[in-house]
Amino acid sequence: MATSSAQTTGAARLLTKQLKEMHTEDISGISVGLVRDTNVFEWEVILMLNDDCKYYGGAYFRAIMTFPPEYPHLPPKLVFQTPVPFHPNIYPNGELCISILHPPEEDKFNYEHASERWNPVQTPETILLSVLSLFNEPNTDSPANLDAAKLLRIEREGGPKEFRKKVRKCVRESLGED
């Protein structure tokens, strides 16, 4: 899809508005800002998981959310920075795998319905709230990190707490304790 200058300008205006809205609303557990003041298409995100999170405690995870010039018609990409959370829905390289960030096209594997994929009504706020929810309820049905999904399934079935151990190590690293 070719991107016009008008489309890019419209996307930049929308992102500026959405960033401003997120700064005026106090959204628990989410902090956003621009990576560079000159680029509204690249946001730094800090997710603060509290101790009540099912992801085994408080942590601070930093991510970069990159928006395409075609936004809101195409989804952004969210990539966690070091330390990358050990999570079934986060690839080892830090890229988040969540249905709402998949392009709004038919799923060639017939795993997801079109209604589960990207829709322009999504906003950075709804995306990040979904990510926080994913930390509480990881999806092991279509994992990005097979090791994390396998260990979580074993743990849910009453097996050893290896998933929990790896997550706690990751949480400590996120807090600068390792």
Results as ranks from 00 to 15, higher is better:
Ser28Gly: 05
Glu112Gln: 07
Gly33Asn: 13
Trp118Met: 06
Ala11His: 10
Ala6Met: 11
Cys53Leu: 03
Pro75Phe: 14
Tyr91Ala: 06
Leu101Trp: 04
Cys53Gly: 01
Arg172Gln: 07
Arg168Asn: 01
Thr8His: 09
Phe41Asn: 09
Leu14Lys: 14
Pro143Arg: 07
Leu34Met: 14
Val32His: 10
Ala12Leu: 03
Glu173Tyr: 03
Pro72Ser: 14
Leu47Val: 04
Val131Ala: 00
His113Thr: 08
Asn110Arg: 12
Trp118Pro: 03
Val79Glu: 13
Val84Tyr: 11
Asn50Asp: 15
Gly57Asn: 05
Ile90Asp: 05
Phe109Trp: 09
Gln81Leu: 15
Lys161His: 10
Cys170Thr: 12
Ser115Ala: 12
Phe163Tyr: 15
Ser28Phe: 04
Leu132Tyr: 01
Ser115Pro: 02
Ser115Asn: 10
Val131Gln: 00
Thr38Lys: 07
Ser99Lys: 04
Gln7Lys: 11
Arg153His: 05
Asn136Cys: 01
Ser133Ile: 00
Asp37Asn: 12
His113Arg: 11
Trp43Arg: 02
Pro88Cys: 08
Glu95Tyr: 00
Leu128Phe: 04
Phe61Cys: 01
Arg164Ile: 00
His23Phe: 09
Phe41Met: 15
Gly29Asn: 09
Arg168Ile: 13
Leu152Gly: 06
Pro68Tyr: 13
Ser133Lys: 00
Thr38Ser: 11
Asp37Cys: 03
Pro120Trp: 09
Glu105Leu: 10
Leu132Pro: 00
Val171Gly: 08
Ala12Asp: 03
Arg62Asn: 07
Val45Lys: 01
Arg153Val: 12
Ser174Cys: 08
Val171Ile: 15
Asp52Asn: 09
Lys20Asp: 14
Leu19Trp: 07
Ser133Thr: 00
Gln122Ile: 01
Ile100Tyr: 04
Asn139Pro: 07
Pro76Lys: 09
Pro120Met: 11
Asp178Ala: 12
Ser99Ala: 15
Leu15Phe: 13
Asp51Cys: 02
Arg168Tyr: 00
Glu70Phe: 08
Ile154Thr: 10
Cys170Leu: 03
Leu175Gly: 01
Val121Thr: 14
Gly29Asp: 08
Tyr91Arg: 08
Lys169Leu: 12
Phe86Arg: 01
Gly10Pro: 03
Lys20Asn: 13
Lys150Thr: 07
Ile27Pro: 02
Leu34Ala: 10
Gln7Pro: 02
His73Cys: 09
Lys20Thr: 13
Pro92Arg: 11
Asn139Arg: 08
Lys166Asp: 05
Thr3Met: 07
Pro120Ala: 11
Pro75Glu: 13
Thr16Ile: 01
Lys150Arg: 15
Phe41Val: 09
Ala6Lys: 15
Thr38Asn: 08
Gly94Leu: 08
Ile46Tyr: 03
